[in-house]
Design a protein around this nucleic acid. Structure first.
Lengths: 220, 220, 220, 220
DNA sequence: TATGAATGAGCCTTCATTCAT
DNA sequence: TATGAATGAAGGCTCATTCAT
């Protein structure tokens, strides 16, 4: 499509390396305890340079979220191309989400950060914010499309509004993922010790619950 | 039961007034941007007095969460006493949660704060922290009990492990509530504008989804 | 002499109990980390009551110092009554000081506190301050008297000015005691580990040094 | 020896300027009443910059002590190179110490602060702390060496253990210096008014006392 | 473009002292 | 006389952001 000059290409690469470094720092220090100094050092650049690439700490965090949701959307988009009944698409999307989070759990935190920022009304109308929001809309759209396909092929009940159901599934998925993460943490709640589950089994159960709940039981 | 002296009663009342003030400040400033100075001023007490009642900012935040979950548990506990099939108990609990959050949305944020603190491992072994955890366990127990009742009375499938299903429902509920809040906020995502829903309808849909998913379809 | 009413006697007793408690708290917390709250609690009185007996934290500290130097002076005064050559009186006073500090090391810190306060010019002209200063003058006087006796009975060189020598001995003694305390502490300097000494041996050496230095060698 | 880059040299210079400023503030406010704000203002830098050079208030204090003891050791070390009997070396060291303190009395307070910190066990194992301790050991070593020389050349009695005697001299010297300072202060004890002495005469007297006490009287 | 020294607003927390009861 | 709840000044420290080189 558009051709980037060498300078521009180098800039994009460096930007990505900074995000890599930022993710690395957050893995050990936690999302909000990571300082710009540490990130700059980890990226092996000066702090001033860091600010050349990201206008603020928030912008850097959002860039992480943006990258994460972009990568996730790539995978969700491919699921939608499969020749499967709608309900199976939803199921596949669920496991796609699960695997993505399992491999890069930090993005999960980053997504939450994006929503936090949006809620606070900060950085409205900035390009990065709009990109993030665009990705969120895209993800929602994939889910809604799969639901619509399912309602048309008869695999999913028509009693739900597809958009509303999309929001429900999206929200509920995040909640279940969050719960699973709590257990994985060193300082989780005692109650979770009594229950034998992990990320995989919890999400599987959740997807099975969804499947049963959405399934069209009527003979047509 | 136990009789508190006048001093003790006054102390409890004042403590509650401080929590009220803290909640009020957070409504305008947001949970983490509220400062101890502002809270003290809102409570019309000196900053030193504030520290007399709450050893740290975190302890104050946790006290808010503790109060919230205590109030919620009171309501959940009463639901469990109703003579209803298990699946209806779950449904009622869902709406109880919904209404509680609608009336006191700040507690929702406070719950999340508690989990955040627990995850970070701060303040482990403090009384307030253990109270909060106790409440969380209690809430989970109410859900699991309702599920067990439902499995016995035949209103809920037996294919799920009740405890694991409890975790799923608990997590998913929080996720859906969170989604609904995003919409209610002034700076919500554009995608949510296209969809006609509110807290009520979204949770209703979610509960209906749960109901269908858990319902025992077999003739016995 | 003067007769104290019952009220006055009780007040003196209580004052002493508070000083006991304060000393006890300082033993564990250290002189400057002891708070008025802890001291009041240890004395089993209210904080307000504490302020009825001592106008300020500094006044309390000075009262400790005052008691300490009063007790020490009592002992020094008795030494002066002994029928001994002056140089032996000095020696005896040195060991008296040593034993007093060994039995009640906290007074040593209290003495230093008094000098600290005096240096800062705080609380000048208060009764307690003047009492403390009076005790210090008294202690100095005992030393000077012993020196004068020694110079008269020929046991001590006359080449020194007795008052100046008194100041030297007084200051040097405190410095040596301080050094010995450093060794007794858990976190003392490594250099002190290489040397085999304790409070007793160090002070003995010091007194022997003094004795030799002051001794009159000339045949008269 | 080692070559510092321009940046490194500038940093060292600035660090020294900050220490100068800190010393200046302490001259008027006293050691512990000097605040980081005041010191930063006196150094004409921001508070953040101050923390860039010194990690904590304690670290700054220790840096002052470190500089002081380094400067003093330089002078003590040179004394040891002189071709003089041991007893004269000790005497010269005494006057070296005296003059050093007279010219930079604040270092005297700083030395005491170092011992205070060491006693409390704070900041153990930090580089600055170890430097300070190293300097203290070095100073002690100079004294002990001079004593050993004196015992070998016959100018000092062999009846003392040189190390123990070193500790005694070191401690006693500090005590006498301290006493002399009390007199110089605006709010000194009245008793000192009656005595005609100053830093110089007091220390001279003390050194004469030491000399007599240590001198070898035996004809060899 | 790259740097990193400098900044300073802002926060939490402590604790001696007061005073109404 | 006794109390202890209330106070608020004061201080140390962090860290995102800027800017001169």
């Amino acid at each position: 499509m558009k051709k980037l000059s060498r300078k521009e290409r180098e800039r994009v690469i460096k930007r990505d390396l900074i995000i890599d470094a930022a993710l690395h720092v957050m893995q050990s220090k936690g999302f909000e305890h990571a300082t710009m100094d540490e990130i700059a050092e980890a990226a092996e650049i000066g702090k001033g340079t860091l600010y050349l690439y990201f206008k603020s700490k928030t912008a850097l965090y959002l860039a992480i979220s943006e990258r994460g949701s972009r990568l996730l959307n790539d995978q969700l988009g491919k699921v939608l191309l499969l020749e499967l009944p709608g309900i199976s698409l939803i199921e596949k999307m669920g496991f796609t989400y699960l695997n993505f989070i399992r491999e890069s759990p930090l993005y999960f935190t980053a997504f939450n950060y994006f929503e936090h920022i949006m809620n606070e009304g900060k950085m409205a109308n900035t390009p990065i914010m709009e990109q993030c929001e665009g990705h969120a809309i895209e993800a929602m759209t994939y889910i809604v499309r799969a639901l619509q396909i399912g309602m048309q092929d008869g695999s999913i009940k028509k009693s739900f509004d597809p958009k509303e159901l999309g929001v429900i599934i999206w929200g509920a998925s995040k909640g279940v993922m969050h719960m699973a993460f709590l257990k994985n943490n060193a300082n989780h709640m005692k109650i979770l010790d009594d229950i034998d589950f992990d990320l995989q089994s919890l999400v599987s159960g959740f997807i099975e619950l969804l499947r049963s709940g959405m399934k069209n039981d009527l003979k047509s």
